[in-house]
Amino acid sequence: MEIIRFADLRPQPWRNGGGVTRELVSHPLAASAQDGAWDWRVSIADITKSGDFSPFPGMERVLTVIEGELLLLSVDGGEHPLEKYRAFRYSGDAGCSAALPTGDIRALNVITRDGAYKGFASIVELSKKRAHPLFDGQLGILLQGEATATPGPDLEASGDDPEASADEAGTGGNASPGAPQALGRYDAVVGSRSRSPEILGRGFLAVVSIDAVPAGP
């Protein structure tokens, strides 16, 4: 089980000085340091000053305010008031700027290459009684509250290998494969095909899905 700790992420200042971005994950990973060199990216941005957003030609963006009250987004001249936890999809080719009528904003950004991938972001309320699973191609980010992540059952196991199971669970053999891992605010859990992580707790979880677009005939 892979957990990306928000506290370990290095903030990358925007070129225009309007904020900073912390990248959670991108693909391909080797290209993550170059704007737009990847095919998709999931990041969290702190917006501290009104101004223009960087363009991402050939990309599609999904922005969700996750902290703060209101972001006024202007896209190709049209104004869109974005409230907390409401995802907004727009083209990375569009001219885009933001205003902060209620103060600083923290936003979850999902950017995907047009025609290759499609990104989605939704907010779910967690439960202590019913776990929320994260499947392959998904990322779960704890936005608020307290929660734990536990590796799900290994549906593709071909035999009993405790040592391998511990490695797969991300414990390094120091804990049982099913040991719950506490999540901090904005920590992200990477979904899996064989051991789908399960999230239990109280609060709100952002679930990001990245779907490959089927090739045409």
Rank of each mutant, 00 (worst) to 15 (best):
Q138F: 03
N109L: 05
K129L: 14
D161L: 15
L72A: 00
E83Y: 14
L108G: 03
G173Y: 04
P57L: 08
I111T: 08
E69G: 02
D160A: 13
Y117K: 03
L155Y: 14
D136S: 14
T112Q: 10
D114Y: 00
A98G: 11
Y117G: 01
P81T: 02
L82V: 10
R89Q: 13
I66P: 01
L82N: 04
G159I: 05
G137S: 11
A147F: 02
L108N: 06
H80F: 13
I141Q: 07
V124E: 12
V124C: 08
C96K: 01
A147M: 04
K129I: 07
I105C: 06
A99S: 13
G137I: 13
V42C: 11
G92W: 02
S54T: 14
G170C: 03
E60M: 06
I47R: 02
E67S: 14
L108E: 06
L126Y: 09
E60R: 13
A164D: 12
A116N: 07
A99W: 06
Q144M: 10
P101M: 01
P55L: 05
L126Q: 14
G140V: 14
D52A: 15
L73W: 00
S50V: 05
Y117I: 10
G95H: 08
E163G: 04
I123D: 04
P151W: 09
L142W: 11
L155S: 14
A149I: 01
G58I: 09
L134P: 09
G51T: 11
S50D: 15
N174A: 11
K129E: 13
K128E: 15
Q138E: 15
A131V: 07
A149E: 09
Q138S: 04
G115L: 00
T48N: 13
G68Q: 04
D161T: 07
D154Y: 01
A98C: 12
G172W: 09
V62G: 05
L63T: 12
E168K: 13
K49L: 10
K129F: 10
P55D: 03
L143R: 13
A121R: 08
D93V: 13
G159N: 10
G68R: 00
R113Q: 14
L73Q: 00
L134I: 09
Y85V: 01
E79G: 00
N174V: 05
D167Q: 12
D46A: 08
A94F: 00
K84G: 13
A107T: 07
C96G: 07
S43L: 14
D76I: 01
R89I: 00
A87S: 15
P151A: 10
D104N: 12
L108Y: 02
P57Y: 04
D76L: 00
G170M: 02
S97F: 07
P81I: 00
T148E: 09
S74V: 06
L100R: 09
G137V: 14
P133K: 15
G119E: 12
T48I: 14
R106G: 07
L71G: 01
Y85N: 04
D76R: 03
E69T: 06
Q144C: 09
V42M: 05
R89C: 03
T64Q: 03
E69D: 15
H80A: 02
V124Y: 00
A87G: 11
T102G: 04
K84W: 07
A131I: 09
K129V: 11
P162Q: 05
G78M: 11
P151Y: 10
L70A: 08
V62I: 04
R130I: 12
A149Y: 11
S122P: 02
Y85A: 04
F88G: 03
D76M: 01
S91F: 09
